[in-house]
């Protein structure tokens, strides 16, 4: 459990980190919280020859909440978990973060690291899809924003280009009539999602007028559940309407099967957890 040797850099600004990444190219990896990368390096599943530790880049940390929520890429799960205004602006995020790993994982792990890693069982990909977030990155060609819907391309794969660093995540704060929630079936030892569901709804005059649902853990990547969303929009958001809509969860999705849960079981759990997340989101929106 000892990583292969590497050179270590700890830049103190984003510009410096980008230059180092540019210089070392494919041999280099960014080190954020290290709670996906270091375990992989200890098992020699990853062996970068250069690590660029961005923990000392202060400009990448912090949370701002007004009409828009902005979370710096290096913000830890703990900082997000204990931010009262953020929990109000997006309850789904607070739900999800409080269920990640354990206190020690949350003290180190970062939102940027989780999104860049795109673990199929990570929680945050479902949340950023459900709140329709923008993922801000900076690279050799300057800054750009990627919609969450375009970000996750495959298992452990994202739309990040070589040399790019995630700098922040933004999305619109919930207003009146809007609610969101996250529900998951955690792996009993690691707490990663066996199946996790994030839901956002908007209610106007007793009707669901907008809805986004995303599932993580079940397949190779987190995915929006458009069939569920279409089935719920226009209904009164009653328990029956939610159950009917949630029955479409997992439709058309490739399922993963392993010793913890078969494909069939995960498919069944997609429906259960989509329903739970939606019921909670609607309760909060009312």
């Amino acid at each position: 459990m000892i990583p292969a040797p590497f050179d270590y850099y700890a830049p103190t600004s984003l510009a410096e980190a980008l230059t180092l990444l540019q210089q070392h190219g494919d041999d280099a990896k960014i080190l954020a919280g290290g709670h996906s990368l270091l375990p992989a390096m200890k098992l020699r599943l990853a062996a970068p020859s250069v690590l660029i530790d961005i923990n000392r880049v202060a400009e990448l940390r912090g949370i701002k909440v007004n009409g828009t929520v902005e979370i710096g890429a290096m913000t830890t799960w703990s900082a997000i978990e204990h931010h009262a205004a953020l929990a109000k602006a997006c309850p789904a995020m607070a739900d999800a973060v409080g269920l990640i790993g354990d206190i020690q994982v949350r003290n180190r792990g970062t939102i940027g690291g989780s999104l860049a890693h795109a673990d199929p069982a990570a929680d945050m990909p479902a949340v950023v899809l459900a709140v329709d977030a923008q993922i801000h990155v900076e690279g050799p060609n300057g800054p750009r924003a990627i919609a969450a819907a375009d970000f996750f391309t495959d298992m452990l794969s994202t739309a990040l280009e070589p040399g790019e660093i995630i700098t922040a995540i933004t999305f619109t704060s919930h207003g009146p009539g809007e609610g969101s929630a996250y529900a998951k079936f955690p792996h009993p030892a690691s707490r990663y999602a066996i199946v996790g569901a994030a839901a956002y709804v908007k209610m106007e005059n007793g009707q669901v007028t907008a809805c986004r649902v995303a599932i993580t853990g079940a397949g190779p990547k987190a995915e929006r559940q458009t069939a569920v969303e279409q089935a719920l929009i226009g209904t009164d958001g009653s328990a029956d309407a939610v159950a009917a809509a949630a029955a479409h969860a997992g439709e058309g999705m490739e399922m993963l099967g392993d010793i913890h849960a078969s494909e069939e079981y995960r498919r069944a759990m997609c429906k259960v957890y989509a329903k739970r997340a939606l019921l909670k989101a609607i309760e909060r929106a009312r």
């Binding site: 375990p39 530790d53 180190r108």
Partner: peptide
């Protein structure tokens, strides 16, 4: 696998798994 917590110490007052942190950090 960073799961057992036998290695927990405090860094600047915050609990972390010392098996998943580099000494240089």
């Amino acid at each position: 696998t960073s799961q057992c917590g036998a290695c927990v110490v405090h860094i600047n007052g915050v609990s972390v798994k010392s098996c998943t942190t580099l000494a240089v950090q």
